[in-house]
Design a binder for these strands. Structure first.
Lengths: 182, 182
DNA sequence: ATTATATATATCATCCTGATATAGATACCC
DNA sequence: GGGTATCTATATCAGGATGATATATATAAT
């Protein structure tokens, strides 16, 4: 999916600044996709130039000004068109996997070259990390208003449930089988 | 993990060509990490210049020549040093997650903008893909000789078991809950 | 004879990331 | 008060990885 479509998609959930879009990638979307500031800001400027989004400078008390972008009708049309094209391309491509770069699995792969103590720490930290993730995906309390729209999506409920199931089975496996690494 | 260390690590399993390293990333490692030709070939040349690997030109019948790289003592030392440094960096970084870019999850996220039929196809293809993956991870028969070393690693048994558990729980969840997307 | 496919190496433009710069504002501490 | 650290916020850019492309040999298919 191209960055334009992705940014438009996130703005379709409600007006946001570039910084807030980045926060979504660092937070609730971090396990699925990410874009850097160096991509987000130029993309928003381009989308604004081409009238796919409008921009309001917003003064805030206690914080610097921010530029809040709102998706336009033209932007929504482009987004829907592009999403349809992306879905078709995904289907046609025959490549249904995700692009993953996992430092953790590489360290596991070469575990025999690591001191037992180091490997133990790596595994312990990973387990703690996954337990935290699990809490986050299960958490059902109030969220910041700009994330509420995300939370309300039907698809997000499905995704959170899936993530929960995956993490639980992963943790379960690791607890029962980490002895195999020794 | 830097590309040098990763290539050395793969060569530590046995001599290989750049093309064969790429095949590992396309095959058994595809769910964990990947490097492109544009990274692999220059890396191997650099490692050879600095005597971390040696290179033999190999004539093959029925195939073009290939350059088979073998890790040297110096290379193994560097690899072990770097792996230790990478593990320490991983622990110190506080970032224990993986870097993921998932077209599938983005399409799910924006599912409400897709026709039901398109979404169905996306999900069906993903399920078929995961079933194939599952077969691959479970498969215990003979493998090409250059992949046997990988298969023999203790850590690989652990990783394959983990991948199997994850995929099974993911498939199970999707079968039971895909109605939630409608 | 031509097209397609697989093996094999190499290079390069394009694009993205990670780092850095800048800046306003708050908060803590001595 | 002054120093430092942190958070919010936007922007830019060097460096590096990817995806595409080029080249070449050999087999298989049409």
């Amino acid at each position: 999916m191209q960055k334009d479509t992705l940014c438009l998609g996130l703005l379709s959930l409600g007006p946001r600044s570039g910084y807030e879009i980045k926060q979504m990638f660092e937070g609730p979307l971090s396990d699925f996709y990410s874009l850097s500031f160096g991509t987000i800001y130029p993309t928003l400027n381009k989308l604004q130039d081409e009238k796919y989004v409008s921009c309001k400078q917003l003064s805030q008390s206690k914080k610097p000004d921010k530029k809040v972008y709102t998706i336009t009708k033209k932007g929504k049309d482009l987004m829907k068109d592009n999403l349809l094209g992306d879905a078709s391309a995904y289907i046609r491509s025959g490549n249904f996997g995700d692009q993953i770069k996992s430092e953790f699995f590489l360290l596991l792969l070469f575990a025999k070259y690591l001191p037992q103590e180091t490997l133990d720490t790596v595994l312990n930290e990973r387990v703690l990390f996954l337990r935290q993730k699990l809490e986050q995906f299960k958490y059902d309390g109030p969220v910041p208003s700009d994330l509420q729209a995300l939370r309300n999506e039907k698809s997000v409920a499905f995704i959170r449930g899936l993530a929960t199931a995956l993490i639980e089975s992963g943790l379960n496996y690791m607890e029962k089988n980490r002895g195999k690494l020794n």
